[in-house]
Write a protein that binds this DNA or RNA. Sequence first.
DNA 1: GACACTTATGTCAGCAACTGTCATCACTAG
DNA 2: CTAGTGATGACAGTTGCTGACATAAGTGTC
Lengths: 189, 189
Amino acid sequence: MTRWEPGARERLNSAALELYASKGFEETTVAEIAQAAGLTERTFFRYFADKREVLFAGSELLEQQMLDGAAAAPKSATAFEVARAAVTATAAYFPEDRRSYSRLRAKVITENPQLTERELRKMSSLAEAIAAALRERGIPEPTATLAAQSGVTVFRVTFAGWISEGERRSFVEIETETFAQLGAMTAKG
Amino acid sequence: MTRWEPGARERLNSAALELYASKGFEETTVAEIAQAAGLTERTFFRYFADKREVLFAGSELLEQQMLDGAAAAPKSATAFEVARAAVTATAAYFPEDRRSYSRLRAKVITENPQLTERELRKMSSLAEAIAAALRERGIPEPTATLAAQSGVTVFRVTFAGWISEGERRSFVEIETETFAQLGAMTAKG
DNA sequence: GACACTTATGTCAGCAACTGTCATCACTAG
DNA sequence: CTAGTGATGACAGTTGCTGACATAAGTGTC
């Protein structure tokens, strides 16, 4: 018999989501999460920097995917095209099987201001990563930030649509349309 | 003799900014801020919901100014034009005299992740307010959110430019240029 | 197979953010 | 003069989070 079961991180993760969803984020104490996972509070904080972070672990993968997408764009691409490539590359991250999980997670997040803040920070960090990649390509500020932010905005709108009630289209389909709308909107005037 | 000096809110506000700037946000305790203002910790929390909020009070004014700007836009304006009107209306909020104060405040905020999160939330809330105004005008989603977010992105980039070292141009000047850049960027492709 | 070494966890003490509750003092209306 | 109101103080309590140290499981070495 091992002293501890494997997969502590996983257990903490799902225990947290379940509790946050069932009784609310603020009403859940870290001690409860730890107990549900068969661990102690102290251990929770060894895996996650804070009570919120447990819902956002793994976002480095998303960022990496975006950066890979940006890197794959042709040399001749404009700033906005590179940003778009970065966003498009994340589609693989949102297959049909994850849609309902994403819905639950998003619901928990939008219902709590603290979690919303953290989500915004992650989005901002994604934008900054893309902006940095654009700068690497020689695109100056503020164009780099502007393009990166716009790309992330499309990403957010796309994601919101993807998890909206009754939506059946795939992530890429929605994304394509969202980009088209942004183009149409700013082109005019 | 009154038992307490007037302007408690003001005193807490400036004491907090000074302490955050001089010894860092996390290194400053609420008790210290309260003491510097001649009050108690409990009173601090009567004025501000949390330790961060002390730097963000008054953002309702900014939001109102944006909404007024949006409301003043002609009926025939497109979603993006209305969003632009909202952003342009905030220029009065950033006169030359406030630039150095804004610089200090921004420095404190960008140096701390927790404060950055709160700032992002405020920006998000501004975008949501504009989006709601657009919906009121009959503009459907996701166009409303897309336009509002884009407007706020321009606002953020403009603000960052305005407080950047050595920048002399006025807020409106920078804003005009930023909008032009966004238009040029998305139009292409 | 004894020994050190590393890694994941537990235990415990403590700080600081935030909250609820009640007391207190200045001011105001009548 | 008194009763009421509103801002503040006093104080205790919960919880997020951290540091320091102990302990047990697994891993290698001779």
